[in-house]
Simulated assay, not measured.
Amino acid sequence: MNAIKTINLTKQYGNRQVVKRIDLTVGEGELYGFLGRNGAGKSTFINMMTGIIHPTEGQVELLGSSNQDEVLSQIGVLPDYSSFYDYLTARQHLSYFSSIIGYKLAKDDVDLALEQVGLLEHANGKVGKFSFGMKKKLGIAQAIVHKPKLLFLDEPTSGIDAESSIQIQRLLQNLNNKGVTIFMTSHNLTEVEKICSTIAIMQNGVIEDEGTLHSLQKKHSSQMEVTMKVSDDATILIHAIEQLIGSIVLEGQKLTFRTDNEQRIGDVVRFLVHNGLTVYHIAINQPSLEDIFLKTHKGEL
């Protein structure tokens, strides 16, 4: 079963289409990263999927159902903005909002969610005195407190410090390892590169690229640059190596070449070892997610 499926999903304001006929499928158990510049349509897209706004055209299926009310209790949402009651404590806030969607949670359940986001020591603190980062953590706790099967997170680590960001990343990975499907937007490309199993890049209301990091790297790089450090100077073998791989650059114990075939890397390693050299280190330089993102948006630069 797919966790998310959109069919021809469109949002139009006046004559302007913000989201343009998107067909998207996210399988159960994915940690799906959704990228795009400000104004690309990311938040509008996620808000249509979660029922915050209605599409102009198209259909959304969540957890196999086109009726969002049927699966509401199995979904957690962190929108691009969160509103809180300043006079409630963090613990009271989670209990109150959980009751609105039909959950009467035990104190231990509430405290577990607060602990997971690093707010347990502030459980009795009034939300009105929380910093922006603390409110972001509370929003994530609100999204996960009822143990949903599907999470929508809009910029879950924006505005929080580096240590808290790492903590949230680990939390998302742990939830995903337990079977929770996560759909998240982020401007933190390193974060997405690190934790997401599938990545999509949105531009001007359409999805320009989608795939695993490896498949995107392969698509956007015709050749890999490979550097090997070997035990001895390989000058004596340079002509034979070039017969295997083509042109190479040799600087003492460092050998560099380019290839579009991973098999050729293994061929070179076997040849070197067969000729008495030890390969200490192999580095394969492929485009980063930042490189791919900028290349996708090159026409806008």
Rank of each mutant, 00 (worst) to 15 (best):
Ala3Val: 00
Ile4Leu: 08
Ile7Cys: 14
Lys11Leu: 03
Asn15Gln: 15
Asn15Ile: 12
Gln17Lys: 14
Val19Phe: 01
Lys20Gly: 02
Asp23Pro: 08
Val26Ala: 03
Val26Phe: 02
Arg37Pro: 15
Gly39Glu: 11
Ala40His: 04
Phe45Gln: 05
Asn47Asp: 03
Met48Asp: 00
Thr50Gly: 02
Ile52Gln: 05
His54Leu: 14
Pro55Arg: 04
Thr56Ala: 13
Leu63Trp: 02
Ser66Trp: 12
Asn67Ala: 09
Asp69Tyr: 08
Leu72Ala: 09
Ser73His: 13
Gln74Asp: 06
Tyr81Cys: 15
Thr89Glu: 05
Ala90Thr: 15
Leu94Ile: 01
Leu94Val: 00
Tyr96Gln: 12
Ser98Arg: 04
Ala106Asn: 14
Leu114Glu: 08
Gly118Ala: 01
Glu121His: 15
Glu121Thr: 06
Gly125Thr: 12
Lys126Asp: 07
Phe130Val: 14
Phe130Asp: 07
Ala141Ser: 10
Ala143Gln: 04
His146Asn: 15
Leu151Tyr: 00
Phe152Arg: 00
Thr157Ile: 00
Gly159Gln: 07
Ala162Asn: 12
Glu163Ile: 05
Ile166Ala: 11
Ile168His: 00
Thr181Trp: 08
Met184His: 02
Thr185Met: 04
Asn188Gln: 05
Thr190Trp: 10
Glu191Met: 01
Ile195Arg: 00
Thr198Val: 06
Ala200Tyr: 12
Ile201Leu: 13
Met202Arg: 01
Gln203Lys: 09
Leu213Glu: 02
His214Gln: 14
His214Phe: 15
Ser215Lys: 15
Ser215Ile: 03
Lys218Leu: 14
Lys218Asn: 14
Val226Gln: 02
Val226Phe: 02
Thr227Gln: 09
Met228Phe: 04
Ala234Phe: 11
Thr235Pro: 11
Ile236Ala: 14
Ala240Lys: 07
Glu242Phe: 05
Gln243Ser: 11
Gly246Tyr: 03
Gly246Gln: 01
Ser247Val: 13
Leu250Phe: 09
Thr256Lys: 04
Phe257Arg: 04
Ile265Glu: 03
Asp267Gly: 09
His274Tyr: 12
His274Arg: 13
Asn275Ile: 01
Gly276Lys: 03
Leu277Thr: 08
Leu277Asp: 07
Tyr280Ile: 04
Ile282Pro: 13
Pro287Ile: 00
Glu290Thr: 06
Ile292Cys: 04
Leu294Glu: 05
Lys295Asp: 11
